[in-house]
Design a protein around this nucleic acid. Structure first.
Length: 561
RNA sequence: CGGGGCGUAGCGCAGCUUGGCUAGCGCACCUGCCUUGGGAGCAGGGGGUCGGAGGUUCGAAUCCUCUCGCCCCGACCA
């Protein structure tokens, strides 16, 4: 491909809207353009990258025995109504009507449609297992699109779905997909983790996410370097370093107008872990007192799993249910339900005295109050691993893939059933598995760049080699460059030939920005010594190779890296 | 949806507070000359509904009202 013929609109300055490194570089290097919030045009370079990623996806999916299909993006409402998601999902679903006023929506994902197909075509245990996948556009009216192509309203997703007769089959397919995901992300040159994750509204029995570490990431995970425990903070458990036992007497202390943990802690000169935070929430119109240690944060999702939907109580509700103002609440002596974080089970604490301007020192859980115990706190850096008691570290990550054990949530709703060996009708056991190819591309840039531009992993680079003849008016440069180009193309190497009438500096800058892994530089000086230069984009190392050996050396580099 | 910021040429910006010549600068673009190892130089040139609508005024990029769009933080993320 000739540079002068290809649309590669590089920019010297970054549009001010870009924040994430991958976003800036994709704009500057001429990979993408924004049409509207969360809607991106993939220019030729970016589309070549996507094509390469999708090729890897297809190869690995096909290798697992999964079958590629293509589903519509426009869906009739009825299917989504049957699973209830038509009603559960709110503004995030694009909805429209056809000319006959029939309700339709744009597919955010394809569990419904895949299951609809299974419900019609799978009749017997003999038809199972099946795994179907597609690489298809999804539409979600995101509340906040951001970070370039990382979070968009329209995006391509590789989604696969497994259908099994029993849970053993599901477990097996789940593992096969997980293994394929490892191969895919490795082939794409990414650093990544597989982490335990929340099943969310997908429902189901278990889930993992594949996470690529990057400062542009939207998720946080905790990692134990010692035993390998690793989980999204959405679900992560953690313990805390044991507190020194302090022999406080149970006594009331005056804390005039000190309400927050920080204020009381400073006033009494007692560290925040020795406090109990008492929060009143209302779940299904019933008040519940929630206790969390002073240095911890309440994990709302964990609490939702215990209480169902809840909301914080109003000031008036606090006074009417507890007889005291917020800031001086303690768990002692109340008749209402109390749920507490497990970290509070041991120890002696300070907490509100249920009396304005007073706190109580020496409160012992189990002695001075009772509660239901759950894990309700947000795991944070420095907490201890729940499995091996080592300090946890945290990392910001981009979610590049996820896998869910769905069970029968969708098959039951859509009556996707089969007859087992005994002639009994049973719902199909399902799993679903997604990968975002654009996120792979963005994560690859986030993880591989320097001040000059992108450094593509070889497997997903838009081209294998860029040929950079410095002066095409020099006939020898031209002749050798063109002949190398032909030889490489003949050998199925994808080559970008910078045939532009630009000065060398411009060509070097653009080459670094675009990030093709191998640069072949032809300059008059070196050619006088019968040499050309082979440069590795990542290291910027350059070696001189004789013209005769050039082809073989380039082929070696393309196949290595 | 809550909070904040920004819309002036393809990109980056100035001008706006205190209304007033033909709306400016750098880069990019076009023509010519020159140059060819890290975003050259000289000369000439093209490109603008100042996001949109309404209003105030003799006069609006500038002041007022409404509106649309984009970005960031948070909530959300099936």
């Amino acid at each position: 491909m000739f540079f002068s013929k290809m649309l590669i609109p590089t920019m010297r300055e970054v549009p001010s809207e870009a924040e994430a490194v991958s976003h800036k570089l994709m704009l500057r290097a001429g990979y993408v353009r924004q049409l509207a919030s969360g809607l991106y045009i993939y220019l030729p370079l970016a589309w070549r990258v996507m094509t390469r990623i999708n090729k890897i996806l297809r190869e690995e999916m096909d290798a697992t025995g999964a079958q590629e299909v293509s589903m519509p993006i426009l869906h009739p409402a009825e299917v989504w109504q049957k699973t209830g998601r038509w009603y559960e999902i709110k503004d995030e679903m694009f909805r429209l009507k056809d000319r006959t006023e029939r309700d339709m929506c744009l597919g955010m994902t394809h569990e419904e449609i895949m299951t609809w197909l299974a419900s019609r075509e799978i009749k017997s245990y003999r038809d199972l297992p099946q795994v179907w996948y597609q690489i298809q556009t999804k539409l979600r009216d995101e509340a906040r699109p951001k970070s370039g192509i990382l979070r968009t309203r329209e995006f391509i997703m590789k989604d696969s779905y497994s259908f099994d007769a029993d849970y053993e089959g599901l477990d097996k397919n789940y593992q096969i997909q997980a293994d394929a995901y490892h191969r895919i992300f490795n082939r794409c040159g990414l650093t990544f983790y597989q982490v335990e994750s929340d099943t969310g509204m997908m429902g189901g029995a278990g889930a993992h996410e594949f996470m690529a570490p990057s400062p542009a990431g939207e998720d946080d995970i905790v990692i134990c370097k010692s035993c390998g425990y690793i989980a999204n903070v959405e679900v992560a458990h953690s313990l805390s370093k044991p507190l020194k036992e302090i022999p406080w007497e149970y006594e009331e202390v005056s804390t005039p107008n000190k309400r927050t943990i920080k204020e009381v802690s400073g006033f009494l000169k007692i560290d925040s872990p020795y406090f109990i935070k008492s929060l009143l929430v209302i779940a299904s119109e019933v008040p519940v007192l929630v206790l969390i240690r002073g240095d911890q944060e309440l994990h709302e999702k964990k609490l939702t799993k215990v209480l169902g939907n809840f909301r914080p109580a109003t000031k008036d509700e606090i006074v009417s249910y507890l007889g005291v103002e917020a800031g001086f609440i303690g768990p002692m002596g109340h008749k209402i339900r109390i749920v507490a974080d497990e970290l509070l089970k041991e120890g002696t604490y300070v907490t509100g005295a249920n009396k304005i301007d007073y706190h109580i020192k020496g409160v012992k859980p189990g002695t001075h109050f009772n509660a239901e115990w759950y894990d309700l706190h947000v795991a944070k850096e420095g907490d201890l691993c729940p499995k091996c008691n080592t300090s946890l570290i945290m990392d910001k990550v981009i979610e590049i893939g996820n896998i869910f054990k769905l069970g029968t949530k969708y098959s039951s709703a859509l009556n996707a059933v089969f007859l087992d060996k005994n002639g009994q009708e049973k719902p199909i056991i399902m799993g679903s598995y997604g990968i975002g190819p654009a996120r792979i591309a963005a994560a690859a840039i986030e993880q591989n760049n320097d001040k000059d531009g992108i450094i593509w992993p070889r497997s997903i680079a838009p081209f294998d080699v860029e040929i950079i003849p410095l002066n095409l008016n020099d006939s020898r440069t031209k002749e050798i460059a063109e002949s190398l180009y032909k030889e490489l193309v003949q050998r199925k190497v994808e080559v970008l030939f910078d045939d532009r009438d630009e000065r060398p500096g411009v060509k070097f800058k653009d080459a670094d920005l675009i990030g093709i892994p191998v640069h072949v530089v032809l300059g008059e000086k070196s050619l006088k010594e019968n040499n050309i230069e082979l440069k590795t984009r990542r290291t910027k190392e350059s070696r001189k190779i004789s013209v005769e050996n050039a082809l073989n050396e380039i082929l070696k580099m393309v196949r290595e890296e």
